[in-house]
Amino acid sequence: MTEATQRFFESLPERAPTVLRGLVAGTLQIDLGTGHQTEHWLVRMRPGAVESSRERGPAYAVWYSSSTLFDRLITGEAQALAAVLRNESTFSGDVVLLLAFRRFFPDPPGTRDPCEVAREAVGRRS
């Protein structure tokens, strides 16, 4: 596991109030593979709160990713849903948990808010 991954999971509880504003609740097990080793994270989500631990356990959903891909996700260089659709990672269970969890990942570098882009375009026409 990389230091960036460790910091990412440690930051979840602090960031949860702004990221998890909906009614999502459940447990997501994240399995990160490196070679023949798999590291497990259990993420318990509820509105405005997250708890994460380094364990396996009963979960409503399981997401497998390589450690390398996960490092790209936490820097915004890759997107979680695109990785699942391209079969770069696998997911089973309650998809709402993945959709909620992906909000913790940053936007790709250089991404701009569409509203900001539209305001600038309107300003140029004036």
Rank of each mutant, 00 (worst) to 15 (best):
D71N: 14
N87T: 02
T68I: 14
A49G: 05
E120C: 10
F105N: 07
V122M: 05
V50G: 01
A80T: 12
W63M: 07
T2I: 06
E116L: 13
Q6V: 09
E88H: 12
R103L: 10
H36W: 03
A4W: 06
L97C: 13
V43A: 10
L42Y: 12
P47M: 00
E88D: 15
G57R: 12
S89P: 03
N87F: 01
V117K: 01
E51V: 02
A82G: 04
R15E: 07
Q29M: 12
L42C: 05
V24P: 04
Q6I: 10
A49S: 00
A82W: 08
R112G: 01
A78C: 09
D94N: 15
T18H: 00
T75M: 04
R102K: 15
D71R: 08
C115E: 08
D94R: 11
Y64P: 00
E120P: 14
R124C: 05
R46Q: 00
T68D: 14
N87V: 01
D31S: 11
T75N: 07
G22M: 06
A118V: 07
A78W: 13
R102V: 03
D107L: 11
S67F: 01
T34V: 10
Q6Y: 06
E51H: 01
A100Q: 10
S52I: 01
A16W: 03
E51T: 02
R124M: 11
F8Q: 11
A121L: 07
P114N: 03
Q6R: 15
M45C: 03
L20I: 09
L99C: 07
H36Q: 09
M1R: 06
A83N: 12
A82T: 07
P108G: 03
P17M: 10
G48C: 04
A83R: 07
R56V: 10
W41K: 09
V84F: 11
Y60C: 02
R7M: 09
P17K: 05
G35Q: 04
T75E: 04
P106V: 06
R103M: 07
T90K: 03
S92Q: 13
N87L: 05
A16D: 01
Q29P: 05
F70Q: 12
V96H: 15
P17H: 06
F9W: 11
P13E: 06
S89H: 12
R44G: 01
R56F: 00
A118P: 00
E55G: 12
Q6A: 12
E14T: 15
F70M: 10
S52G: 04
A16E: 04
H40Q: 11
A59K: 02
S89L: 14
A59D: 03
Q79H: 13
R56S: 12
V84I: 12
D31A: 14
Q37P: 00
G57I: 02
S52Q: 14
S92L: 04
R102E: 14
Q37A: 14
L97V: 06
D94K: 02
S92G: 03
Y64L: 14
R119D: 05
V117Q: 04
A4Y: 08
S66A: 07
V43G: 08
R119C: 09
T2D: 13
H36M: 01
L98P: 05
P58Q: 06
L42K: 06
T2C: 02
T38K: 11
L99M: 15
G123P: 00
R46A: 00
P108A: 15
A61Q: 06
G123H: 13
S65H: 11
P13W: 14
T38H: 10
P106Y: 09
